[in-house]
């Protein structure tokens, strides 16, 4: 349903073992709130991303529940621990059942 959804994430290419790194994520999505009306006065149905998760090698970093009050193109910034080399996995869950995923590898060194 939602078109043109594109996830973007910013993760450093490498980190020291045990280091805390900052991760920034943004996904292009209109986040239709369900409050707006079209020109005929009909309510435009809600269509948002309702959940975002970030995991590293299977361990959770953050799990966010989103309401319609999150802006268009949901943006999140947070910090993660990097205990070893591996892969961050990012997942967004759409109201329409779509799941958007992306991942980023990080090396130690």
């Amino acid at each position: 349903m939602a078109s043109g959804v594109k996830p973007r994430v910013k993760v450093p290419k490498s980190a020291a073992a045990g280091e805390a790194i900052t991760i920034k994520t943004l996904i292009s999505h209109k986040m239709e709130s369900g409050q707006r009306k079209d020109s005929d006065g009909n309510i435009i149905p809600r269509s948002i991303i309702n959940r975002f998760t970030c995991d590293f090698n299977g361990e959770n970093v953050v799990d966010v529940e989103l309401a319609p009050a999150i802006s268009t193109n949901p943006y999140f910034e947070f910090e993660a621990l990097v205990p070893e080399a591996g892969e961050f996995k990012f997942t967004w869950y759409d109201d329409d059942g779509s799941v958007y995923e992306t991942s980023k590898k990080i090396a130690i060194g």
Binding site: N60, V61, D63, A69, I70, A80
Partner: peptide
Amino acid sequence: AMGNPTPSVATFKFGKLAASRAASTRIR
């Protein structure tokens, strides 16, 4: 957001590998 038509904004849950209990986002 106490003054919005629906006040819910977000719930952040921090996992084992969260380096800090902090997050930024943008809201309406």
